[in-house]
Amino acid sequence: MKENYRKERIARSIKARSDDIYALTSYREMWYLLFPRVIPIIGIALVAYFLPLYWKKVIITTCIFAMLAVSWDFLSNCGLLSLGQALFFGIGSYAAGSLDHYLHLPVYVTIPVATIMGGFISTIILLPVVRLRGIYFAMVTLILPLMLMRLIEATKILGGTEGITGLSPFPNVWVEITLILAAMWASLFGLRRFIASDYGLIFVSMRDNDRATMASGINIYAFKAQSLFIGSSICAFCGAFMTHSYQFTGMPVFAMEFSILPIAAASIGGIGTLAGPLVGAMILVPLSEILREFGTLRIVFYGLILVVCVVALPEGIFHYASRKYNEMERWVKIE
């Protein structure tokens, strides 16, 4: 009989481990855990600090989109499929812009206040529709930013079509980069830790089976509102940050780009991992800058790369990479 071989997968786990305590026994194990976390942090910081000014701005935009993508993934993890990151982003942006323009508050006040305010306003706007599921919630979130955009155009409030210009900038570009990098890593690792906690378990269970969650005596609408607040606050921070970075806020902040690009980033990076969307944004945004020299063909190449990514790695880059990193494979003989 011919010999049969089968590929076996073994988790490359850390030796001493209990439920929630990792007992690290060697530098090798520590390095194994730290490597995928520390290297990107240091790497991106190095790149961000030493590139010329134009690319510094690109990195800042990348980080903003990465945060939008992480927040989108968090919301989708909680069973809220959002097509309207632009809504949260725009509200945060307008909040920061008007606080600065009308009340003349300094940057270090407007950004935190706009973050909280943006979270609150978005949650309150979406509270009535939080009971809708899946595609219906997505439709509402898709429409709302377009509606707000036209509302501002028609009523000419908050600067109307002109927008609000001449807002106060950051002291210098170093502060700007440090702040956005810190915020991005804080939101990524914070949300990852949050989702892994016992409290965060409820949020994930709402996506898996919301009826079973309800049957366990949990008021899922309260939890959905909480997740909405967390997700939209992150986007509102991005909006506020961008406003001060460009010293401008106006109708473009409700553009579809801010809703769609995070989803594209999440789907090529790997949905459901939080880190995946960040990886996706880190690839897509600089890529679109590099492709700029092709002029109009840019979108064609961009679309092609997206299609190839989705077809070749439907699970997403992060899923694939983490599988390769955490598992060993070897051939074993049967019998």
Binding site: N4, R6, K7, R9, P314, E315, H319, Y320, R323, I334
Partner: peptide
């Protein structure tokens, strides 16, 4: 196989 999930082997 395409989404990198469980590997199923048939003999």
């Amino acid at each position: 196989q395409r989404k990198g999930g469980e590997r199923i082997t048939i003999f």
